[in-house]
């Protein structure tokens, strides 16, 4: 908790939070990091294999193989989410399944599934990007800012 927030607490609250903190089982950070590294790495290896498959068997080039590879990974992630297994894998793997594109596919699919009972328009349509939305908003915005900087530097004569 930030120190700013702590200032607003009474002494009793602060005292209690110390007790509560001491009884709280810690997240196994090192173990989680190792698991995330292994699973995240494995997903990347699978991605690389798919990419090489596209180059080798389907006449894609190094540049054009990226998009179909991502599509395949997204498809696999969506399938695993729909079968209800992805969240179990994610509980074990943590950031390993959250950071790659599979995690993004999972956020969209899980929200869509969750709100399916509320109908296609207001349910699925309205809530599909509930968790993924911020990523898209700030992703696009950051790209916009970076592009402006690049254009400005170029207009000033460039580096």
């Amino acid at each position: 908790m930030s120190s700013k927030k702590k200032k607003n607490l009474t002494p009793t609250q602060q005292q209690y939070q110390q007790i509560a903190k001491s009884k709280e089982p810690k997240r196994p950070i090192l173990l989680n990091s190792i698991k995330a590294f292994l699973v995240g790495g494995l997903i990347c290896v699978i991605g690389q294999a798919i990419k090489m498959g596209f180059i080798h068997y389907f006449e894609f080039t190094e540049e054009t193989a990226g998009n179909p590879t991502i599509a395949v990974l997204i498809f696999i992630s969506t399938l695993l989410t729909s079968f209800g297994v992805y969240d179990y894998i994610a509980q074990w793997a943590g950031a390993g399944t959250a950071v790659p594109v599979t995690g993004f596919a999972n956020t969209v699919t899980s929200a869509a599934l969750e709100h399916r009972t509320e109908g296609f328009v207001l349910g699925v349509g309205g809530n599909m990007f509930k968790i993924a939305g911020p990523v898209i908003v700030f992703g696009v915005f950051s790209a916009f800012v970076v592009a402006i900087i690049k254009l400005t530097i170029e207009a000033l004569g460039g580096i």
Partner: peptide, 17 residues
Amino acid sequence: EKQYRYPTEYGAQKPPT
């Protein structure tokens, strides 16, 4: 879970608490 937290199939790692 839907009401208070994330979609049920969302893969977020839960802490031991």
